[in-house]
């Protein structure tokens, strides 16, 4: 099977295109309560159809959702990437972390990386994330990524909050970018000490 999905790396993670072998991990999450903000829980048949659609999205749009792997173990941890089915107002940056892998900053690290790819390599000038208002973990992550609620943006079906990501130039050498990178570094190395002096 030929594939031209780019492989992205971060300190702790490798992001690769979704492979048939990764399906059991996807199915476990999307048939679980974890998927309640992502159209689930799905039955096994629906989960397979959606997984195939994740792969098809790459073919149709030229981008899609990467599978997040632990760089050391190779285990899958979740998915992050771009998503734009028919009739969506604009392209979304989306993420999901398997329920037993949460709380380690993987979504932040992976999503920051894919956003950089979309901005730097694909020339995106903006992006949104459509988030269920009850999905507080994802709203918090959107905010940590510097996204802010956009009350004027078009919605999918009126049931989602739209968070708009900072534009590419707001992520270049900015305090926001440094803060995101510092938080990622802290997850990667809890004893991490930033260079420089504390202001207080």
């Amino acid at each position: 099977m030929s594939t031209q999905i780019p492989i992205l790396e971060t300190t702790r993670l490798v992001l690769r295109g979704p492979e048939p072998d990764d399906y059991p991990d996807f199915k476990a999450t999307f048939t679980s309560y974890r998927a309640r903000f992502m159209g689930g829980p799905l039955n096994a048949y629906e989960a397979w159809m959606l997984y195939a659609a994740e792969i098809g999205h790459w073919q149709i749009r030229g981008y899609g959702m990467w599978m997040i792997h632990d760089k050391v173990s190779g285990d899958t941890l979740g998915m992050a990437g771009g998503w734009k089915p028919a009739k969506w107002p604009e392209a979304e940056i989306a993420w999901v972390i398997w329920p037993d892998r949460g709380g380690k900053g993987y979504a932040l690290e992976a999503t920051h990386r894919v956003r950089g790819h979309f901005y730097d390599k694909l020339g995106w000038e903006t992006a949104v994330s459509y988030i269920d208002p009850k999905n507080l973990d994802s709203i918090r992550l959107a905010e940590r990524l510097g996204a802010v609620k956009d009350h004027d943006a078009g919605t999918i079906d009126g049931n989602h909050a739209v968070y708009r990501h900072p534009a590419p130039d707001e992520l270049t050498g900015s305090q926001l970018a440094h803060g995101i990178e510092m938080e990622i570094s802290h997850y990667a190395d809890p004893l991490f000490k930033p260079k420089g002096w504390a202001i207080d």
Binding site: M1, A52, A86, K87, W88
Partner: peptide, 20 residues
């Protein structure tokens, strides 16, 4: 709906990728 149909079209393509 158009969105369901579009996803299903993606599934048609992904089916090829998964099964050959």
């Amino acid at each position: 709906t158009p969105r369901q149909a579009w996803n299903f079209f993606g599934t048609e393509i992904g089916h090829w990728a998964i099964h050959g």
